[in-house]
Design a protein around this nucleic acid. Structure first.
Lengths: 222, 222
DNA sequence: TTGGCTAAGTGATTTAGTCAGTTTGTGAGT
DNA sequence: ACTCACAAACTGACTAAATCACTTAGCCAA
C-alpha cells in the first residue's frame, strides 16, 4: 500500500520547515501558496497540515497564517486525544511517576548543570503564584527532569504531566497542598544542588508518595 | 479563541467511538455518513479524521472504510513526525533508557504477574527469529515494562523504542549482537522470575551499557 | 500622535463532482 | 450444489471554484 498523497505531503512540508531552518513560532507558507507549489488543491494541503497540527508540528492562527509549533522536534508526545481521566488512571500515572521520577532526580543531581538549576529555582518559586496566573509557569517536575541534561527525559515527564493539567484544578480544590509541595520541592532542589543523588532520589519518592496518599484519600471525582 | 469546528468535530468523533464502545479494528461511520450526521461537508470531516489519524486514533483503508486505530487509548505517543535520527539523538535515547529501564525492570521483578511473564518469555525467543520475520514480534524491552503491571510504563518504553526501529537495521548491520542480546535478555528474565529486583536492575543496566558501547564504537551513520 | 477605516492576505468552510480502490452479492457456467 | 467472474454499491482520495471570517498593515483624517 503506497503512502497516500497526504502522507507524502506532510513529509514534504516538514522538509520545507527543516531545510529552511524554521523554528517554533516561525511562519510557514500559506495553504494557498503550498497548494500552488505542489500543484494540488487547498483541501488536500489542509489535510496534511491538520495531521501536523495534531502532533504540535504546526499551529493555525485564523486570518494570520500557519506557524511552526512548539513540539515539532519532540520524540514523544502527550496524546492530544487521550481518553478522559478516571480515578484509576490518575493512580496509574502516579505509580508510573513513582518509578521514573526518583531516578531522574538522582540523575539530575549527578549531572548538575548551573543554567538548569536556575530554571529549577524559578519553577519552585513559580509554584506559589496564585491560580489564574501566567499559564507558562514552569513546572517543577518537568524542570527537575530537564536538569538531568537529557531532553528526552524532559519530554517524557512533560508528556506524562500534561495529562494532569486537565484535573489539576479538581485535585487542588479537594486538597490544596501547595505550601507543603513548595517545601518538599525546595528540599529536593537543595539535594540536587548538593549533588546528593541518594537524598534527591529519596526525597522525590517521598514527595510523590505524599501526593499519592492525598489522591487516594480524596473522594471520587468524575 | 473558541475551538474551531474541526476541533469540536474530532471530539465528537471520539465521542462516537467511545460511547459506542468501539475498540481498535472496529469500523467507524464513513466520512459521508459523518458529514450528513453533523450537517457539514466531507472535506471538513476529513480534516478532523486526519488529525485523529496522526495520533493513531483512527486508520484509513482506501475503498474499505475508516477504522479505530491501535493507539486510541494511549496517553503518550511516539511522535510520527519526529526529526531524523542523528548519532547524538541515538546516544541521548540510550542515556534516557539507562535511567528509566533499570528501575522499570526492578519494578517488574517485584510486581511479577504470571501472564506477563509468559509474554516476556515469548519476546525473548522471538528475538532470535531471523530478520524479515513477522513484523509484530514482541519487543523484549517493551514487554519487560509491561510486566511491571503499569500500562503507562509500557507506553513510555514503546514510544521511546519506536524511534529505534528506523535505524535498527543500520545498527544491526554494523554490529550484530543478537546472540549476546539474547543471553542477557534471558538473564534478566530469570532475575525477574526470581523476584530479585536488585539483580534485575543491575543486569538491565549492564545490558544497556553494552548496547551503548556498541553504538559508541560504531562508525558514523547518516 | 492617535484613531478608525480600508484593503490585502490568510485560514475556515462550503458545494459539487470525479477518480480509485474494496466488498458483496448475483448469476452463469461447471 | 459449487465456483468463479463480474457488476453494482459503498468507501476513501482528490479536484475545482467559490464564499465567509479573521488578522494585519497601511493610509488617512482628526
Amino acid at each position: 500500500m503506497p503512502p497516500s498523497l497526504s502522507d507524502r505531503l506532510t513529509e514534504s512540508i516538514l522538509g520545507i520547515i527543516r531545510e529552511g531552518g524554521l523554528r517554533p513560532g516561525d511562519a510557514i507558507p500559506s495553504a494557498r501558496e503550498l497548494a500552488k507549489r505542489f500543484a494540488i488543491t487547498t483541501p488536500t494541503v489542509r489535510e496534511a497540515l491538520r495531521k501536523l497540527e495534531a502532533t504540535g508540528a504546526v499551529e493555525f492562527r485564523h486570518g494570520s497564517g500557519t506557524y511552526v509549533g512548539p513540539t515539532i522536534n519532540n520524540v514523544v508526545l502527550a496524546n492530544p486525544h487521550r481518553p478522559p481521566i478516571t480515578r484509576e488512571s490518575v493512580l496509574q500515572l502516579i505509580s508510573a511517576r513513582l518509578v521514573i521520577e526518583p531516578v531522574v532526580a538522582a540523575q539530575s543531581a549527578v549531572a548538575r548543570q548551573p543554567e538548569n538549576l536556575d530554571r529549577l529555582e524559578a519553577a519552585v518559586t513559580n509554584a506559589l503564584v496564585p491560580p489564574g496566573g501566567p499559564a507558562f509557569a514552569l513546572n517543577f517536575h518537568v524542570e527537575l527532569a530537564a536538569a538531568s541534561g537529557n531532553p528526552l527525559l524532559q519530554e517524557v515527564l512533560a508528556s506524562l504531566l500534561k495529562v494532569r493539567v486537565r484535573e489539576q484544578q479538581q485535585i487542588r480544590a479537594l486538597y490544596d497542598n501547595r505550601e507543603r509541595d513548595h517545601e518538599e520541592h525546595q528540599a529536593i532542589v537543595e539535594a540536587v544542588r548538593a549533588q546528593d543523588a541518594v537524598r534527591a532520589e529519596r526525597l522525590t519518592r517521598e514527595h510523590l508518595d505524599n501526593i499519592r496518599q492525598a489522591v487516594e484519600s480524596a473522594p471520587e471525582f468524575s
